[in-house]
Every structure is written in C-alpha cells, then in structure tokens.
Amino acid sequence: MAGDNPYQAFVNFRDPLQKAISCVSKEAHVWALLGTNGYRPGEDHTLVPKTGDPVRLRGQNELDLVSQIWYRVNAAEGDRGPWKVETLAYSHGLETTDAQEVIAYQWHPGQGSRITYPHMHLGSGIGADLGILEKVHIPTGRVALEDVLRFAITELGVEPQRDDWEETLTGTQDKFEEWRTWHGSGPASP
C-alpha cells in the first residue's frame, strides 16, 4: 500500500486488514504497534490484532485467530510511492482455545528459519494423530488474511460478524492483490 508519507502508507496498509478482521470479530479492532514508531521508515514492525492476544471466534467450533504481519515502510518510486509498506513476513493461524495449533499459514524468509517459501502447518489442535504431517512445511502460494478468514467462515463454522462479510473480504483482498508485488512461492528473502 502506498501513501504520501510514511504514516499514510501505514494507514492504507492497516485499514483493509482491520476491515477484514471485522468480519469475524466485533472486538478485535485494536491493533498493537511498538511505541509511536509503527511507521518509522526502514525499521521492522509487527502488526497484530487485539494487542497480540488471540481473537476468540464465535461459531460451532471453539477457535482463536492468531495473526501477525511483520512489515517495513520504505520509500518507493512511481505508482507505488512515494512511501510503501512492504510485508516481510506473515503468520495467519487458527488455534484451539487452549493454544493448540489447528492450521497456520506462514511466510517468514528473514526470521532465522531455513524455510523461506510460503507454507502451511497442520497442528495437534486438529485432534488427530498427524504423524509426520505435524512436523512439515506444506508449500502454498502467498496466502492473504482474507483467505484464512473466508476459510474459517465457510469451512469451519465460524460465525461472520457482519452481513456484508463476503463483499468486505472480496474488497479488501482485491486491494491487497492490486498492491502486492509477488505471489506464488515468492522471494526467498524479503
């Protein structure tokens, strides 16, 4: 997302994510940043819903949403400037309410892991013996937060918290896909 200044670029990045989250939670409209520097250029920041605590999802299964986005505000040229937010890593997961991972979509090429491609984890929160599947990184393309929220609603019985959730998720995802600079396996480093 671009902006005329670092703060505006950050706001243009943050607001669609907030709107997407509102499809599954009426409470998770507080996002946490470090100090007042969540948009200082050239530094790494993390954005999380609900001050970093899991977001309880209403529905037939007791699930929490855990989402983290690591980003940086950079100067950019052309249509993507003069300031742009670059995503450096993401993790969008669903857990049981006792913190057992059910499924997590991640990409974290610069965070010390040998796994640099976007991938998915299946966890013990599924409630079945997964054997080796619990240890592996299943390749995916780049996964948007909206993909995970839509999956939670349509496949896992999470109750949407607004009537227009389909249009909302489509709209924010369209914006994300318009501005993203990669998809598929992506770069091996941010």
Binding site: V30, W31, G35, T51, G52
Partner: peptide
C-alpha cells in the same frame, strides 16, 4: 445479524513496556 460498523479503525500503539507485556 447485527451490522457492525468497523469502518473506522481504532489502533492502539503500545509503549515499550506494554510491548514487553504482550511478549511475556
């Protein structure tokens, strides 16, 4: 279903101390 109005964004910026609390 109640239509929620989440179009305005309420963002909380954590202090360093609060950030450490989150991490802990």
């Amino acid at each position: 279903m109640e239509q929620t109005a989440h179009t305005s964004v309420d963002t909380r910026e954590l202090s360093r101390e609060e950030g450490r609390g989150l991490f802990d």
